Simulated scan of single mutants.
Amino acid sequence: MTESTASPAALSEIIDDFAGVPDPQKLELLLEFSDELAELPARFHGHEAEMEQVVECQSPLFLAVELEGEPGPDAVVRLYITAPREAPTTRGFASVLSQGLDGSTAREVLDVPEDIPAKLGLQKALTPLRLRGMSAMLGRIKRNVREQAGL
């Protein structure tokens, strides 16, 4: 049983990918994820101010969380996150969360451990300030899910 078993399947796969590379290459893998951050749907273009800014991130990062289906633990979570290309570590972690959590149920997202940056093994690659920003991003997602799902 791996440490990632409490996470949704997609996030568990990402955690396993990071676990499979040596520490010096973890930052490179994070930067690869930065190139994979999905574009925002057209309805959000020019409306980033309507999204929630994660001020703990060193770069401007905005996110929106929506639930599909009836509010509750089985509602499907949809994540929309934007960060500038000039902030590849922030974009990389946003992409990890987006790819790992989008499409999961509200309960699965709320059950994700808080220490995802540590599970990715990024403590040696990133400063504590960046790690706090990443944790804050997950915290905001969870707070939004909890409020919208009524949990």
Rank of each mutant, 00 (worst) to 15 (best):
I81L: 14
A118G: 14
G133Q: 07
S135A: 15
R140V: 15
V77D: 03
I81W: 00
P60K: 04
E56I: 12
A87H: 05
P22M: 07
P128K: 13
L11D: 04
D74C: 10
P24M: 04
A49V: 10
A118I: 03
F33W: 05
I81A: 01
S34C: 08
D111I: 07
L126Q: 02
S135E: 07
A64L: 09
A118F: 13
L129H: 11
V96D: 04
A42G: 09
H45C: 09
V109S: 03
F33C: 03
L37R: 06
S34H: 08
Q123C: 02
A38R: 15
R85P: 10
L120W: 02
T5K: 14
L97R: 00
F62R: 04
G46Q: 08
T89E: 01
L129W: 09
R146W: 10
K119Q: 15
G72Y: 10
E36C: 12
V77L: 08
L31E: 11
A75C: 13
P8G: 08
E56C: 06
G92N: 02
D23Y: 11
G100S: 09
A19F: 00
S98G: 15
H45W: 13
R146C: 08
S4C: 04
S12L: 08
V112L: 09
T90N: 03
G69E: 01
T2C: 14
A64H: 15
Q58M: 06
M51F: 07
G100H: 09
A106I: 07
V21T: 08
R107H: 13
A75Y: 05
R43I: 14
S4K: 04
L27Q: 02
L67I: 15
L37P: 02
G100W: 01
R107W: 07
E13M: 14
E39K: 15
E32G: 15
M134P: 02
K124S: 13
D115L: 09
D17R: 14
G72L: 12
P71G: 12
L101C: 11
L61E: 01
V65S: 00
G72T: 11
K124H: 12
R78L: 10
P22Y: 03
G139Y: 00
D23E: 11
R143Y: 01
S4Y: 01
H45R: 13
L138A: 08
L126K: 03
E28L: 15
L11N: 02
M51P: 06
L97S: 05
L151H: 09
E86L: 09
N144M: 09
G133P: 02
A136V: 01
V109G: 01
K124W: 05
I141K: 02
Y80C: 13
E56H: 06
R146Y: 07
H47N: 06
S104A: 11
E108D: 08
T105I: 04
G20Y: 02
S59E: 01
D23C: 12
A6C: 13
A83W: 00
